[in-house]
Design a protein around this nucleic acid. Structure first.
Lengths: 338, 338
DNA sequence: TTGTATGCGTTATCAT
DNA sequence: ATGATAACGCATACAA
């Protein structure tokens, strides 16, 4: 009967001696159809191994039930967790995730966004590295957009409350008598990095802390390579862009005989799993990453139903104190070797 | 002109005073059309902000240019790297990635696979946790399937050569005079774990090494929790299922005053980035994860063009020796405290 | 070189 | 309760 590769509705209809409409209705559980026919059609469909062509269905029905997502780096557990939350929430509502990784490259992210928009009914930009202009282009696309960790108008926004985050970090450090703190920054195009810097500066001022800043990056080797500069600084505590950078820095400090936290305290944002297993375990800011994804979908779902964008949602992190932070050393640094 | 939300081909045709076919051809660069018309149509399309409905295009053209992928755990850098390689290769050939995460759950993976198959033209199962029967169902789907790190018939196969891997590991350890080795295993449904056990046993026998095994898992806390059991064992060296487990174990050992590698050597599979930054840095097996993804796509691409499945491809890992392995201790364990 | 008409697989509208 | 048919947006075989 089915001489095509795939069994179609019409094949089932023929085999069941009825019409495509009847088969369609029977399979979709329409109530205006006789139970016997439904049973019969179901049986025939099963026998033939019929599977509805979901693409054709969605094409006919309208908007694709697919959510396009961009992340800067799939290997960063922060983003994996966001994707988990987003994926679970979206799937609960019958949607799938089309994922693209920009490799921290704004130009690539823009290409990605346009490609994804062509196949998705909605877009989520995770920690977008897009330029202002790139973001405008993304928002001009004919699909609703939610930004995670970046504030924009005319879009959904879900973000970590970095103001609260930076305050937690600095208050913890001042409580340990640190007065001179160094921030090892993240990727240049990162809004999160800019925001961390802004809130750190502001809070540092209010707490009478001297804040120095250097450029860093997003991964372990950026932290490792920042080692020498960190050592030259006069700071007694370091805040790194994220845990990956923090762990890399810890590694360099160990390799060069700098005792943590006796000589230098290290702390960071995100609290990904390895923060607990690093040596020493890293004091870090825990955030509800999966929740970020979940809320992003909630905003999209509402928007797709015609509602207005809600107000930006800010998630407050929680400080997890571990062994990498301790009382500020007094006076000059003790060098144990090197 | 466009009273629908979206600008369609026919809207452009009307605005350009021509027909849909001409517009279609002009936009797709058909050669049998006059340059002036092409220019005119292009201009009109741009002015109207026309974007082709890629879904309709693909629907019309046939097979969806989407590759469905399942991974057990998005947060494991091993899988992120595979996804990077796969995504890059697929995208270079005009395909996208539909990603699903099973959360290490075979039943969930099966649901996922069927859902993904409905929207994809091909499937890649990464370290599938599917039961034998589940796998059969997956292979019966009307799309070609490639398995990464799992061997099956009638499908593409790309995997790490665990035989070579286990040999590298054990020869390294015997070179350091270890004669009693403990393997801390992975998830029960993992083919990779079974394969690691099988090849370790076999190689251990040939090298006259006593191999003990305990159950573990896939993440840091599995390693941490294996600590007490590891300590009770008489082994002088431990091999963990992967680096995440290894790092967790290292953390427990440190917390409990066991010196690595003086008292116990620890080594592992995968060499994810944190292996280099753990304390001590972890001796591990580096593999070309991104390449796994790349090769998976190559096999799929060939298959989609009608070729037969090629022979399974095995990637040989490389041992990266770091500070977590050293000469076997002699006699009983020295307890520094506890 | 361009336009008209058909079909991809499905759902929904309109008859019956 | 069921069947014939139009339509979703596009590409293309065929006609002109």
């Amino acid at each position: 009967m089915a001489e095509h590769g795939r069994v179609r509705l019409i094949d089932v209809a023929r085999a069941a001696n009825t019409s495509v409409s009847t088969v369609s209705r029977a399979l979709n559980g329409s109530d205006l159809i006789s139970p016997q026919v439904v049973a019969h059609v179901r049986a025939v469909a099963d026998k033939l191994g019929y599977r509805a062509d979901r693409r054709a269905q969605e094409f006919k029905l309208g908007r694709p039930r697919t959510v396009g997502v961009t992340v800067p780096d799939l290997a960063n557990p922060f983003f994996s967790e966001v994707l988990k939350g987003l994926g679970a929430a979206a799937r609960a509502d019958g949607h799938r995730l089309l994922i693209g990784e920009s490799g921290e490259d704004p130009a690539e992210e823009l290409r990605l966004v346009e490609e994804l928009a062509d196949h998705s009914g909605a877009l989520v930009l995770c920690s977008s590295r897009l330029s202002r202009g790139g973001l405008d282009k993304a928002l001009a696309l004919p699909v609703p957009v939610v930004c995670i960790n970046r504030t924009v108008k005319n879009a959904g926004v879900v973000a970590i409350d970095y103001r609260a985050a930076s305050r937690l970090l600095l208050e913890h450090l001042t409580g340990l008598n640190h007065r001179r703190v160094l921030y090892v920054g993240g990727p240049a195009s990162s809004w999160s990095d800019a925001e961390r810097r802004r809130t750190l500066r502001r809070t540092a001022r209010s707490l009478d802390v001297t804040l120095d800043e250097i450029d860093g990056g997003w991964s372990g080797h950026h932290g490792y390579e920042a080692g020498p500069t960190v050592l030259r600084s006069r700071a007694t505590a370091v805040i790194t862009f994220n845990d990956l950078v923090g762990v890399g820095l810890l590694s360099w400090l160990h390799d060069n005989g700098v005792e943590v936290p006796a000589e230098l305290s290290v702390t960071s944002y995100d609290d990904i799993p390895i923060a607990a297993y690093s040596r020493p375990p890293l004091t870090s800011l825990r955030n509800e990453r999966a929740r970020l994804g979940e809320l992003a979908w909630k905003q999209l779902a509402g928007r797709l139903e015609g509602q207005d964008w809600p107000r930006p949602e800010l998630l407050t992190p929680e400080l997890v104190v571990r062994a990498s932070t301790g009382p500020a050393r007094r006076g000059v640094r003790i060098r144990t070797r090197g």
